[in-house]
């Protein structure tokens, strides 16, 4: 019986190794392509190797591996308790990873300096619990001396309009069941577009609403020294600081200056601490099995 499970484990491991190895070459970002009508291309498509990590084949192979390990644990194939525990913990880790990847939410919130956003607007199933306003008070960027490589970038966030918190790379901030991570940043040159009583602050090449009208602001045209504003399918040139006519509306564009946008990744971390705990127990169990226990 022991040999049956070992064989299962071997076959599944070999299949996983081959599929994982091939998938790193044929993934879209790797840049390698088979000729469209070749056998290789057919195989890649049939086995979903170009997106293997999200494919059902990946799930099936890992679940089968878990079943093989669980059966070897519960059907008394492995006699030592330490070895059974090791395989059981490994199964728990694999299942928890799949649970986390399948269920837990992850999304990006870009916040411009001075802007306030509400966490609930980004959560998949909005809940009053997550009516949490986040305002970016200030964004710090420190470059390594003599280079353009950032040494650190931090966001000063006002959470719930009461708590000022520093969010930095490697220093996440917990908000309820979510964790905020400092993911990236960008800098935009912003303009204020004024029309009647309404104003809007926007970067170039972006859509905004002014007096309930959708407007697209193109980049500054150096040859004509004007901005091009597009609305209702027509384009209108406007000089910086001057009042122009856009579809019967008087519009003025005023420079605001450069502002940072902090890119914050929000992650649901339910169960991740348990996963980390299992991973550490796994390492201890592995060391115990190798040096305190003789192999079966």
């Amino acid at each position: 019986m022991r040999n049956v499970y070992l064989r299962c484990f071997q076959v599944l491991t070999v299949l996983l190794i081959v599929a994982l190895a091939v998938s790193t070459f044929v993934a879209p970002e790797a840049g390698f392509r088979f000729r469209p009508d070749s056998y290789g291309a057919y195989l890649v498509e049939m086995l979903s190797l170009d997106h293997f990590y999200n494919s059902s084949l990946n799930v099936v192979l890992w679940v089968a591996l878990c079943i093989a390990m669980l059966m070897s644990v519960f059907l008394k194939v492995r006699h030592s308790f330490a070895r059974k525990s090791l395989h059981f913990i490994l199964v728990m880790i694999i299942l928890l990873v799949f649970y986390d990847k399948a269920v837990n939410q992850r999304f990006i919130i870009p916040i411009r300096e001075g802007q306030e956003v509400n966490l609930a607007n980004f959560v998949k199933n909005p809940d009053p619990v997550y009516e949490i306003p986040l305002r970016l008070l200030k964004f710090d960027l420190q470059l390594h001396p003599g280079s353009t490589v950032p040494g650190a970038f931090n966001s000063w966030l006002l959470i719930n309009r009461t708590d000022t918190t520093l969010l930095a790379v490697n220093k996440p901030v917990a908000v309820g069941r979510y964790m905020l991570y400092q993911n990236d940043y960008k800098m935009d040159y912003l303009l204020e577009v004024i029309s009647g009583g309404d104003t809007s602050i926007t970067p170039f090449n972006a859509t905004f609403f002014l007096n309930q009208r959708e407007i697209y602001l193109h980049k500054f045209d150096d040859s004509t020294r004007t901005f091009r504003i597009e609305t209702e399918g027509k384009e209108y040139p406007i000089s910086l600081g001057e009042v122009g006519d856009v579809a019967g509306q008087k519009i003025q564009i005023v420079p605001v200056g450069a502002k940072y946008t902090s890119i914050i990744e929000v992650v649901d971390v339910t169960g991740v601490n348990i996963l980390a705990l299992f991973a550490l127990i796994y390492l201890v169990a592995l060391a115990y099995n190798f040096w305190w226990k003789q192999p079966n």
Partner: peptide, 27 residues
């Protein structure tokens, strides 16, 4: 990676090959 990006596993090629190393030794 979890501390830095909130993502402990990203199927990055290096991570996948590190897993392949472990699976090979597991074999």
């Amino acid at each position: 990676a979890y501390k830095s990006w909130g993502n402990y596993w990203d199927w990055d090629p290096k991570e996948v090959w590190a897993l392949i190393n472990i699976l090979t030794l597991g074999f």
